[in-house]
């Protein structure tokens, strides 16, 4: 008679170094990193959250700028992030100015990440510092109150018709999004689908796509591996932060309607298959993948229900990336959608 969904609300994925989400609280004006700041380009804005990135390492500053190049420019950013190069000295960060700007991570080289003057990571590699920066921006975008329903989802589009891909961490959203962008679809996000309550449209949050080394290997094997500017300094254990433009220039779409909702489920080795879901089944799967439903429960639940009423919804069993990518592409091509329980054999 009643179906309980015990899954708790999805939280933003953990910081790439696995550390606590709480700031270390060691910041203070006296400990703030000093040195020449490389401020590259304008501030950036996503879904109303604006920020600016600086670094005393020109190479890191350039990588950070490239990562967020798909976001809108912001004239007066409200938040500042700083990545400082340095080393641990007597229990605090000592700034180290690298004149050449070309420096590789090494055992004596580390970075600290500062958010609005508060140190949030210290003594981390370049790759982890950049990953932490992306995570911090995600937190800001997601937690910043706004008239949006935010889904933990990737989002791509064919023309104006979007595909929302909600899933908890570890289901391959980012990898699938990267493959779909490489295959010709437009990119909106690999992390947060933003439904505008006023217009009913899905807004882009084109953050850099976060890909692990395994995902990069799979994409490479399919001929979809891009060479991203942020990828060169990452170790095998670290995520690569890749701008969508590095996969396919001009691939970012500003917004779209939601035509399909596809819930990917990683089942490597099984046959890839799409299963049609009833609207209420879709809503039951969508709700646990929202970030801010509890902020305005009635308004947001009604918006989610309306979304499930008007969009086609599917469960996608992902046996392998190529066939899963093909299944989503077929959805985009098929005006009538895919019939229930169609097996997509490739």
């Amino acid at each position: 008679m009643s179906v309980a969904l015990p899954t708790p609300l999805s939280l933003p994925p953990g910081r790439p170094d696995g550390a606590t989400t709480k700031p270390l609280n060691v910041a203070g004006p006296d400990l703030a990193p000093r040195g020449a700041l490389h401020e590259r380009g304008p501030g950036r804005m996503a879904l109303g959250y604006s920020f600016f990135v600086t670094s005393d390492d020109e190479h890191v500053a350039r990588a950070a700028q490239d990562m967020f190049d798909d976001l809108e420019p912001a004239d007066h950013p409200a938040h500042t992030f700083h990545i400082a190069s340095g080393h641990i000295e007597s229990g605090h960060i000592a700034s180290r100015h690298i004149a050449s700007g070309h420096s590789a991570p090494g055992p004596d080289r580390s970075f600290s990440v500062w958010a609005d003057g508060v140190m949030t990571a210290e003594h981390v590699s370049r790759g982890v510092a950049l990953g932490t920066l992306v995570w911090l921006v995600n937190q800001g975008v997601i937690l910043d109150p706004k008239r949006l329903v935010l889904f933990h989802a990737a989002a791509v589009a064919a023309g104006d018709e979007g595909v929302l891909l909600p899933a908890p961490p570890g289901c391959g959203k980012s990898t699938l999004a990267a493959a779909l962008v490489a295959s010709g679809l437009s990119y909106l996000s690999d992390e947060a689908g933003a439904l505008d309550l006023a217009s009913g449209r899905l807004l882009a949050y084109p953050k850099p796509i976060s890909l692990g080394s395994g995902a990069m290997a799979v994409l490479s094997a399919l001929g979809m591996a891009p060479g991203g500017p942020a990828a060169d300094g990452a170790s095998e254990e670290e995520e690569v932060q890749l701008a969508a433009a590095a996969i396919r220039p001009g691939s970012v779409a500003p917004s779209c309607t939601v035509r399909s909702i596809v819930f990917p489920e990683l089942a490597l080795g099984e046959s890839t298959a799409l299963h049609r879901l009833r609207p209420m089944e879709a809503l039951a799967r969508l709700v646990p993948n929202t970030f801010n439903l509890a902020q305005r429960p009635q308004e947001h639940l009604e918006a989610c229900a309306e979304l499930c009423r008007r969009a086609e919804a599917y469960r996608l069993v992902v046996g392998d990336l190529a066939s899963a990518c093909g299944a989503v592409l077929d959805l985009g091509r098929s005006a009538g959608g895919v019939h229930p329980d169609v097996q997509v054999a490739r």
């Binding site: 969904l5 609300l9 439903l293 429960p297 009604e302 989610c304 499930c308 009423r309």
Partner: peptide, 21 residues
């Protein structure tokens, strides 16, 4: 929060963040 969808009622509890159908 409550929403009707295809003859069923979704009930969402913001406290527990669970939904009943």
């Amino acid at each position: 929060a409550q929403a009707q969808l295809d003859g069923e009622l979704a009930v969402y509890d913001p406290r527990s963040q669970e939904m009943l159908v």
